[in-house]
Design a protein around this nucleic acid. Structure first.
Length: 373
DNA sequence: ACGTCCCGCCAGGAT
DNA sequence: ATCCTGGCGGGACGT
């Protein structure tokens, strides 16, 4: 039962292990941002984004709602978001700050405590829904609980209170006001984890241990004092600060507890980063995502996954040489069967494998014949 | 044991 | 009627 197996190493040895780290919302957010933050991208289609990132659409909703809360995206239409870019963050945050402070003074609070900021937001939301028919009340209630509002309130906490470090349970209990139902607390905290992870991946906040109690808490790290309007998000490309998770890889589609999932290609203990190689593989999707393709101009290294078609052996190319390594390739193929995020790519891979196998049989027969002659 | 948070169900809104 | 959106909480993973 000795346990000192490094998870990364374990995954190398047994690539079928499910790793939740590969699927975190933060990582997904990073990849989503990389997908969007490219020249020519103006409009984001959720379906397309989900396809390209290999995740359920549901997860995209989480991301866009949180991103919308800080102005990076704005909803254009059903299934369509406008990319405003990182430069929109300072303005949005400033607005939230003003809003928060205004509400605060309206409630005549003298102390800028976390609870006060939240209390103000509650009253704010209630004011906005003047008409109290049961229907609109329900909608307000739903809106009030939305990830976007929650994320905005979370941002306000940092900017409108004099508290520097905010733990999630503190934020959750403040958000809930008087109500301290344990179940509600748990739910709220779960949502805050989601939001915090996205903000961390954008380097808006940072997770640190509170010096007081050693418990994790969050600190705002982007333009707290000195908003520089128009500058990109502090951090946008500062990958070194992001959670590393051992390696940077995308969210794969493997389900929890599924042993049939395949492996990652690992090289020297690191998961290989691959750009998407073939435009055509995904091209039949709607085009609104971008005018340029993923392997186009190399500003963004979109991490598509542990595997890309580029790494595949090209069936039928320089057969003799390949033949020598047939066994190696076979081993490799069976060990490192890639796990594509979308159906098209997955099918393409299956096709490659099939072609490879039939070619290999053919080549072996040929070789055998030559031997006999 | 407990903190973290992925996952997908399903209600409700939009088209 | 169908599709889109997203709140919600169970329960698995990580430490």
């Amino acid at each position: 039962m000795s346990s000192s197996v490094n998870p990364e190493e374990a995954q190398w040895k047994n690539p079928n292990i499910y790793s939740r780290k590969e699927k975190s919302l933060g990582l997904l957010c990073s990849n989503f941002l990389k997908l969007c933050d490219r020249e020519g991208v103006d409009s984001i289609g959720l379906d397309n984004a989900a396809d390209q990132l290999g995740v359920e659409r549901r997860r995209i909703y989480d991301i866009v709602n949180i991103l919308e809360s800080v102005g990076v995206l704005s909803r254009k239409a059903k299934n369509q978001y406008k990319w405003n870019g990182f430069s929109a963050i300072p303005k949005a945050v400033d607005l939230l700050k003003k809003e928060g402070l205004k509400d605060q003074s309206a409630v005549s609070s003298t102390s800028h405590s976390v609870a006060n900021v939240i209390a103000c937001n509650h009253s704010d939301l209630k004011e906005k829904g003047q008409d109290k028919t049961s229907g609109s009340h329900k909608i307000d209630n739903r809106k009030e609980k939305s990830l976007m509002i929650l994320a905005q309130n979370f941002v306000k906490l940092f900017h409108c209170s004099d508290v520097d470090l905010i733990s999630l349970d503190k934020a959750a209990s403040a958000l809930l006001g008087d109500m301290h139902d344990p179940m509600a607390m748990k739910t709220k905290t779960r949502r805050l984890y989601d939001i915090a992870n996205v903000f961390v991946s954008m380097n808006l906040i940072e997770k640190i241990r509170s010096p007081d109690n050693g418990k994790p808490a969050f600190k705002w790290i982007a333009w707290k004092e000195n908003p520089r309007t128009g500058s990109p998000a502090a951090s946008k490309s500062d990958d070194s600060k992001r959670r590393t998770f051992g390696a940077e890889i995308t969210n794969t589609t493997s389900k929890r507890c599924r042993a049939d999932s395949s492996s990652d290609l690992v090289s020297n203990g690191q998961v290989k980063r691959l750009k998407v190689a073939k435009d055509d593989e995904l091209k039949d999707k709607n085009q609104e995502m971008s005018t340029e393709r993923l392997n186009g101009h190399g500003t963004m290294e979109f991490v598509f996954g542990p595997f890309g078609p580029a790494s595949l052996p090209k069936a039928g190319v320089s057969g003799k040489e390949n033949l020598k390594q047939t066994q190696n390739w076979e081993d490799l193929a069976s060990t490192y069967r890639p796990q594509y995020q979308n159906k098209a790519a997955s099918e393409l891979f299956a096709h490659y494998v099939e072609a490879w196998e039939s070619w290999q049989v053919e080549a072996a027969n040929e070789l055998h014949k030559q031997h006999l002659n």
